[in-house]
């Protein structure tokens, strides 16, 4: 049983770190500000959730696990608000998103 938990937390931690790295790659590769936000979204949601859940499995049923749950809840609550605030500020300052032309669509 301990071994299963150990391997599960190992898998979650590495998946989370990998997803974070993918999001970091996205923030470098994507062409304009509005699309970069989506890459930041990957690391903020599933990437950090996987890392934190992996750590929860490590710590077992304890105060530390409860604190990790609270960190996860705060992240999930605050990250969309911050992202939306940045997007709205960019929009109102007149930054136009790059969009595909209608005829380009397959």
């Amino acid at each position: 049983m301990d071994l299963i938990v150990y391997y599960a937390s190992w898998a979650l931690l590495s998946c989370g770190a990998f997803l974070c790295a993918v999001g970091g790659l996205g923030i470098l590769r994507l062409p304009d500000f509005y699309s970069r936000q989506h890459a930041a979204g990957i690391t903020d949601t599933l990437g950090s959730a996987f890392v934190l859940i992996g750590l929860m499995l490590q710590s077992g049923f304890s105060l530390n696990a409860a604190k990790l749950v609270m960190i996860l809840i705060f992240l999930i609550l605050t990250s969309p608000v911050a992202t939306h605030a940045i997007a709205q500020a960019a929009r109102q300052s007149g930054l136009e998103p790059k969009v595909v032309a209608e005829e380009d669509e397959a």
Partner: peptide, 14 residues
């Protein structure tokens, strides 16, 4: 709006 933003691939702007 927060659920839209939380889902990668869509961000609510206004």
């Amino acid at each position: 709006a927060n659920s839209i933003t939380l889902t990668p691939g869509t961000v609510s702007v206004d």
